[in-house]
Design a protein around this nucleic acid. Sequence first.
DNA 1: ATGTGC
Length: 505
Amino acid sequence: MTDDAAVREFDGIRLERVREHVWEIPREGEMGVAARVLASEELLEQIGDDMTLEQLRNVTHLPGIAEPAVCMPDGHQGYGFPVGGVGAVDAETGCISPGAIGYDVNCGVRMVRTNLTYDDLRGREAELVDALFANIPSGLGGGGIVETDRDTVEEILERGVDWALEHGYAVRADLEHCEDEGRRPDADADAVSEKAKDRGRTQVGSLGSGNHFLEVQRVTDVYRPDVAEAYGLEPDRIVVLIHCGSRGLGHQTCNDYLRRIETEHADLLDELPDKELAAAPAGSDLAEDYYGAMCAAINFAWVNRQLITHRTRRVFERVFEEEWETLGMDLLYDVAHNIGKKEVHEVDVDADGRPTTAAEAVGRAERELYVHRKGATRAFPAGRPEIPAAYRDVGQPVIIPGSMGAGSYVLRGGRNSMDVAFGSTAHGAGRTMSRTQAKKEFWGETVQDELRDQQQIHVKAQSGATVAEEAPGVYKDVDEVVRVSEALGIGDTVARTFPVCNIKG
DNA sequence: ATGTGC
C-alpha cells in the first residue's frame, strides 16, 4: 500500500504524516530530537511557504531539548524561532533562549465580559469607539495611562497585578482570573536594565502598535454551553478583548540579553545553526538573570493590560451610565502567548534521567523544563491546579484573536494538550504576507470604510498604515487554525465572537 | 513587536 499523502517535502525538509494533523520531521544529522507540525494539509502548505520549517528544525539543536519541538497550525517564521512554536528545554542541563520567547515578552490577550447585549450597543458604536480611542493610549512611543518613576516601575516589575490591586486599578477577582494570578514570583527587577525601565516609565497602560488592539465584540456562537456558562458567556453578549504586551520595556530586555548572550556564551552560539537562536546555558548566571528579567517583563505586561482594563471600565461607565460592576465587566481570563516558564512535564529520559528521544529513552519521568511558548498559548486541561478555581472543572480558558474582520475564539485547554504540545495550543490567525506587502495591497481608509459598510465593524486607528498592515486579507483563516486545535483535542472550542468596535495603534 | 537599525 502506498499513501501519497504520507510524506511532504518543502525546500528539502521532509515531513512524515504521523496521523491526522500531525506531521513529523524525523531526527537526523545534528537534530537533537524530532520536530512536529500540528496542521491540516491546507495550513501545512502555508507553513511550508516561508522559513518556518527550517527554523523549527533548528530549534531541535538547542541543548537539552525534550521531544518534540512543536509548530502550531498558525505557525510562521519569526526571529530565529517560529511564531507559533513550543520548545521545552531541560531547566537543569539545557538552556534558555530569548528568541524562543520573542521580543514582546508576555504579549497576550485578556477578555473582559459584560452584561450588555449587541442591541444595547447598536447605533452607538461610533460614540463608544471614539470614547475608547480618546481614553486608551495607543501607537508607537510613550504615553501611558499612568506616567510613573523608576522606583514604581521596579515595584510593577516585582509585583505584577498585585501592584495594580494596591493602587486601585484592580479588584481581587482580576488577579484570580489571570494566568499565574498576574504575578511571576521569579521576577528580578535588578536584572532589568535602566534603559528598559526608563522606556517602561511612560508606557504603563498603553496598547502599542502593530497587531495590538482593543476590540469590543459580540458572542455569535456557543459550542460548549456548559463551559461557556462557567466562563459567563452567552450568545449576543458583548465582551472586550485586549491584545498587547510589554511595550518598549520587554523589547529592550530581550535585546539587552541577546547581546549579552552573544558575547558571554559565544561557545554555545557557535554550535547553533542560527545566531538568532542564541541561548544561555541552564545554571549560568546569565540564564538566571535573563529568566528573572523576562519574568519581570511578564509582570509589566500584566499590569499594562490591567490598567487598560481599568480605563475601559471607566469608559463603559460613562457611555452606558452604570457602574462597571453592574455592567458585569469581570475579567474572564488573561493569558500570555509569548512566554518562557519553568514547568514540570513528563518526558522521555535516558539512563541519567535527562530528556532524550522516544527511540533512545529508557523510560519516562517528570522534569523541570523551560517551556518556551512563542505565539503559542498555555492550554491546560481540566483538573490542573494552575487553573482558577471557578474554571478548574472545565479547563483553562484560551483566547485566540482573529483579524479585525474575522471572529475570535474562546477555547478551553484540551485533554490531549499535555501529551501533544507541552500543554499548549495556537494563538491566532498568523500572517500570510509581510507588512511591506500589505501596504502595497491595501489602503487603510478603504479597509476601514469596507469594514464599517459591509460588516458594521467600527475601526479607529492612529495610523492608516497600521490598518493596511493588519487588513483582514493578510491573515490566515482563524477558523481553520481552531478546527485543527479542536480535532487534536489540545484546545476545544467554547465560543466564537465577532468584532463591533476596534481601536489600535 | 519596537523611541520601525547595528
